[in-house]
Each structure stands twice: as C-alpha cells, then as structure tokens.
C-alpha cells in the first residue's frame, strides 16, 4: 500500500510538471525558480487550508465552515489591529488560532456530543459564522489604511530569501506530516476513516478524535484568516465567499478520498499547488481568468475519475486478504 500511495503522489507531481512544461511553451519565464517560489507563496494559504480539511475528510467528515471561519477570524484580528495597533503580530496570530479553535470546537462538539452529521453541522455554522462577521463589523470593511504596517508586512518580510508566508506554510506542512505519520492521533485518524467500527474495538475514541480533528481545522481556518486578511489587505463579510469548495477541490485533486481513510499530506499540498499554478498561469498566457472556474472544475472531475480507479483496486486487495485469513 505504501508503494501505491507513493505512486499516486508521483503521478500528481508528474501532472504538475507537465502543466508547468505546457505553460512554459507559451510563457518561457514561468518555470524559473523565482516565479515558482512566487507561485508557492501565492498558494500557501490554500495549502494550509487543504491540510486542515484533509484531516477532517480522512475521518469521513467534512468541514464546510472553514472559509466562513477564515472570514470571521480575519475580521476579528483586523478590527483588533485597527483599534489597538500596539498588539504585536505574534500575539495576534495566537488570538487568530484561539478564535479559530473556538469556532472549530463548536463544530466538533456538535458532531461529537450530538452525533449530527458533520455536513449538516458545518452547513449551519457556515451561515452562522459569516452572519456573525456581519454582526461584529456592522457590515463595515476594514481597509488597508486602518491596518498597521506590521500587520500588513509581517508575512511579506523575507527570511533567507523566502517570504514569511511561505515559511509558515512549510512549517504547517512539516507539522502535519509529523502528526499524520508519527503520532497516535494520526494513526487514529486514518483508522477511523478506513473502518470506524473496527476503530472502536481497537480502543480509539472515535467521537473525541473527530472533535480534535474539527479543532485542528478550526485553528487552521483561524490562522488562514489572519494570513488572508493581511495578504489581500481588506476585511469584509464577502472575504473568501464560496472558498470552502476550493479547499475541498484541492483535497480531491490531491487524491484524498471523500469516503475517508485515504490521503496524505503530500497529496493535499500538491492538489493545492495544482490549483494555484492554474490560477497563476492563466493571466500570463493570456487566457481570460474567467476560464479558471471551468478548468478547475474539469480538473476535479478528472481527478475523481482517476482516483476512483485506484481506490477500487485497493478495495479488492483488502477483500482478498480477508478471504485468505
């Protein structure tokens, strides 16, 4: 199975390489390292969000409220910064993580304690969180001139030639990789996705793990909230409207099975990169940005078709093992 997973990511990597090659034929400068670093930086927020969503999807759940959480938390930190510019940015990031954590914990509690399907819970909280953004802001925007210079420039500062935003993304990727492959929590998440009933018998507290997973996606949503607002320097109720589906799309393209249990950190990162490259490339090769939606839609469908084949093959292997035993 390990070989197979590797195969899937290598395949995706090849697709990305091909995509870059294809774009280079129209715009030779695209593949040079400086530009690729820029693409990575542009995709950082989507990558972080996709990782948070991945952990949720692995447990056979879904979090539709991530974009609304991002919007709410972003508004909170933007308003805090506008009112108290003296608050240092690291403290603001901690606040963003905490606010996101609370929103995620609400989702998690409803899923864990009341056993309501996650799609219903997060469909509800999606509208609540976005509405709450309107309530706290009174419908007003927080503009660039209200934000402190630190707030805007923190993620743009270069460290070893790479912007802080990219470093944060790299750090989150490394963290998720460690948690998913080296901790009991990571193993439980996969186990629940593959077989929730067996997980209970194996001593895994399925409900509690799902709660933790929603806390994680909530914190990620909060972190992305600060990063998004300071990147696009505007906080409004409309921020990241409908973006929850882009996040899920990145996961799907990255080979994360919506049925749970299958997927990897590398897949989520590559899936997000794939979408990021498309949105970065369209303007430079003179295709109207209005094409982006249809292209990513086709990419999603294609990815599901290809992934479904792999999943079916794996299902048969499990059956054969069971028959042999």
């Amino acid at each position: 199975m390990k070989n197979f997973l590797k195969y899937r990511e290598i395949w995706l990597l090849a697709a990305i390489a091909m995509l870059i090659g294809l774009i280079s034929t129209r715009f030779p400068g695209f593949a040079n390292p400086g530009n690729l670093r820029q693409v990575f930086n542009d995709t950082s927020i989507l990558m972080i969000l996709a990782l948070g969503q991945m952990v949720v999807i692995l447990t056979r759940s879904i979090d539709l409220s991530m974009a609304a959480n991002l919007c709410f938390t972003g508004m909170v930190v933007a308003m805090l910064n506008a009112a108290h510019p003296a608050i240092p940015i690291p403290l603001l990031i901690v606040i963003a993580l905490l606010v996101g954590l609370v929103l995620g914990a609400i989702n998690g509690l409803l899923v864990w304690r009341l056993n309501i399907p996650s799609i219903v819970v997060t469909l509800g909280t999606l509208t609540i969180y976005r509405g709450a953004t309107f309530v706290i802001s009174g419908g007003a925007w927080v503009n660039a001139d209200q934000m402190s210079a630190d707030f805007i420039n923190f993620q743009r500062a270069a460290f070893l030639g790479i912007p802080v935003l990219s470093w944060i993304a790299l750090l989150v990727i490394a963290l998720f990789f460690l948690v998913m492959t080296r901790t009991a929590l990571g193993r439980s998440v996969y186990a629940i996705g593959v077989n929730p009933t067996a997980s209970v018998y194996a001593g895994i507290d399925v409900g509690r793990t799902k709660f933790i997973v929603f806390c994680i996606s909530g914190m990620i949503g909060g972190l992305a909230g600060y990063l998004w607002i300071s990147r696009y320097v505007i906080a409004s109720v409309e921020v990241a409207n409908g973006y929850e589906l882009n996040i899920i799309a990145a996961c799907v393209i990255g080979g994360i099975s919506i049925a749970g249990g299958i997927g990897s950190v590398g897949g989520a990162v590559l899936g997000a990169l794939f979408l990021g490259i498309i949105s970065n490339a369209l303007p430079v090769i003179n295709i109207s940005p209005f094409w982006q939606m249809a292209i990513s839609g086709s990419a999603i469908i294609l990815a599901v078709v290809l992934n479904a084949r792999g999943e079916r093959r794996q299902g048969r292997i499990i059956l054969r093992k069971a028959e042999a035993a």
Partner: peptide, 25 residues
Amino acid sequence: LGLPSIVVTIGTMSLFRGIAFIVLG
C-alpha cells in the same frame, strides 16, 4: 463511473458556472 456524488457535483458545479463565466465574463 461509480463516483461519489458529492465530489462529482463539486466538480460540475465549477464546470457549469465556469462555462457561464467564460460566456459572459
């Protein structure tokens, strides 16, 4: 093709509205 409908329709959602955007901008 035996695909999960939630993912298929997230894809076609982008595709259908994407075509509307291509036509209308």
